[in-house]
Amino acid sequence: MNPAMDDSIEIEPTPCAKDRGNDLPVLNEILHALNELLTHDRQTVIDIKSLPFGPVDEERLSIALGQGEVAATIHTLGESRVTETAYAGIWWVEHRNEQGAVIAKFIEVTYMPDILKAQHEDVIVARQKLKDALETIKLNGA
């Protein structure tokens, strides 16, 4: 039998809890980041790809942080999802490419991730576009 097909083989998760889980240091780092946000108004971004996670570490971290009140989807260069965790100020920001593959994933500790805000340059373009749209409407007599 091909060992890859043998579902009796179970990979033991990285030693965790009282031992040395790879998600626990990240949770401590996030707690430290929350302190920084509250005391110095300093935001923190953690690149998940830079962490030495095993097969279940990210899942365990995701369960530990839970689901919050906000979930937003951005459609540019593929889809991006911004979701607040059960802890206010702690966000998941996941960027996907146009094929749907995850290309970057961050935990942001901030009041609002920058990517959610309308960008100044886009607002300038928007003003012109709306002006043009209004001119068109006037010309058409609508």
Binding site: I46, S50, I74, I103, F106, I115, A118, Q119, D122
Partner: peptide, 22 residues
């Protein structure tokens, strides 16, 4: 591509270069 898209491009580029998100 919007400025927001440009920011996404920069964020993913930083991650790709293994540079700090800061």
């Amino acid at each position: 591509i919007s400025r927001r898209g440009f920011l996404k491009f920069c964020a993913t580029t930083a991650s790709m270069m293994a540079l700090s998100p800061s």
